[in-house]
C-alpha cells in the first residue's frame, strides 16, 4: 500500500475489512480499488456534492443511498467521467488518476449503468452494447455479425427472453432497454461497476436476475457501487452502505452492524445510528 493513502473512514466505527475476494489476488485490508476523496461538485453555487469521500474494495458492493436530489448520481458521474468533479481526488489502486471524460473512466475499467440509461435510440442492441468499442474485421469494417453474436450471449445471461436484436432500442420496453444498458456495462471485463438504480424499470424476474448478477460479479472480484432506493435490495446486496443527504455524506456503515431503521434514520434525518434516539426511531414508523 502506498503511503499516500491514509485510512479515510475515521468517523465510522462499524467498518470491518471485507473478506478477500475469491477471484482476484487478495488485497491487504483497506487497500481500496477505488477511492473518491473529498469530492465536490457545484452547479452555479449550489453544492450538489459537498466534500464526499467514498470507496470500494475489489469484491465489495457499496450501497449508495439517499433521498431524491441527495447527490448520488452527481457523485458517481464524476467517477464515470460524465461530469468531472470541481474539487477532490480519485484514486484507483491507490494511485491518483484524472478522469475528465467517459473514455478515461472506461480505460481504467470503470463501467457505468446510468440512471437515464444513455442509449442511442436509433441503433440496435448490439450497436449499443459495443458503442465506442466496436468489433472490427481485419480491414477495419464493423463486424456487426460478431457483435450481434456476442450480444446474444450476454443477453442470454441477463434476460433470456430478450429477442429484439434487430430493432432500434427505441422500440424496446423500459426493462429491455435496461438489460441492454447492463449488458454494455458488464461485457468488457470491468473492474469497477457503477449501477445507478439498475432495477428501476425491471420486472420481478429480471430484478432477481440482476441481483444474481451483482452477487456473481462481486464474487468475480469487481468493486460495485450500487445506487438504489430499495433499502431491502441494498441490505441484501451491499457490504457497506454510504448514506448521502443534501450533497453531504452522512456516513458509511457496515451492513452487519446496523439495522434498516438505523439506515433510514441516516437517510431521512442525516443522523448516525449512535446519534438517534428511540423516540426518533419511533417517529420514523409514525
Amino acid at each position: 500500500m502506498t503511503p499516500t493513502l491514509p485510512p479515510s473512514e475515521p468517523s465510522s466505527p462499524a467498518i470491518t475489512p471485507a473478506p478477500a475476494p475469491a477471484g482476484r489476488a487478495a488485497a491487504p485490508s483497506g487497500d481500496y480499488l477505488v477511492e473518491m476523496r473529498n469530492i465536490r461538485v457545484s452547479f452555479g453555487g449550489v453544492h450538489a456534492v459537498d466534500n464526499v469521500t467514498v470507496n470500494v474494495r475489489a469484491g465489495e458492493v457499496i450501497g449508495l443511498v439517499g433521498g431524491n436530489g441527495a447527490g448520488k448520481s452527481t457523485l458517481i458521474r464524476t467517477l464515470s467521467g460524465a461530469r468531472p468533479a470541481d474539487a477532490g481526488q480519485i484514486f484507483v489502486d491507490g494511485k491518483p488518476v484524472t478522469i475528465s471524460n467517459p473514455r478515461d473512466a472506461k480505460a481504467l475499467g470503470i463501467e457505468t449503468i446510468y440512471q437515464q440509461l444513455a442509449l442511442a435510440d436509433n441503433i440496435d442492441a448490439a450497436g449499443n452494447v459495443f458503442l465506442g468499442r466496436e468489433l472490427r474485421t481485419r480491414i477495419g469494417s464493423l463486424d456487426d455479425a460478431a457483435m450481434e453474436s456476442a450480444t446474444r450471449k450476454v443477453m442470454g445471461r441477463l434476460n433470456p427472453r430478450f429477442k429484439n436484436f434487430k430493432s432500434p432500442v427505441k422500440s424496446l420496453s423500459g426493462g429491455q432497454r435496461q438489460s441492454v444498458a447492463i449488458a454494455r456495462a458488464i461485457h468488457f471485463n470491468a473492474r469497477v461497476l457503477i449501477m445507478d438504480e439498475p432495477t428501476a424499470a425491471l420486472g420481478p424476474a429480471e430484478t432477481a436476475q440482476v441481483r444474481d448478477l451483482v452477487a456473481q460479479l462481486k464474487e468475480e472480484g469487481l468493486g460495485i457501487f450500487l445506487i438504489s432506493h430499495d433499502i431491502h435490495d441494498v441490505f441484501d446486496l451491499a457490504d457497506r452502505i454510504s448514506v448521502m443527504l443534501q450533497g453531504k455524506l452522512v456516513g458509511t456503515v457496515d451492513k452487519t452492524k446496523v439495522t434498516k431503521d438505523e439506515v433510514l434514520g441516516m437517510i431521512i434525518m442525516g443522523k448516525k445510528p449512535d446519534e438517534v434516539t428511540e423516540k426518533e426511531i419511533a417517529e420514523l414508523h409514525g
Partner: peptide, 16 residues
C-alpha cells in the same frame, strides 16, 4: 448515427 440518436448517450458511451 449514434450522436444523432442521442448525443449525451454517445458522449457517455465514450465516443469523441
Amino acid at each position: 448515427y449514434a450522436i444523432g440518436g442521442n448525443p449525451d448517450a454517445a458522449e457517455l458511451g465514450g465516443i469523441n
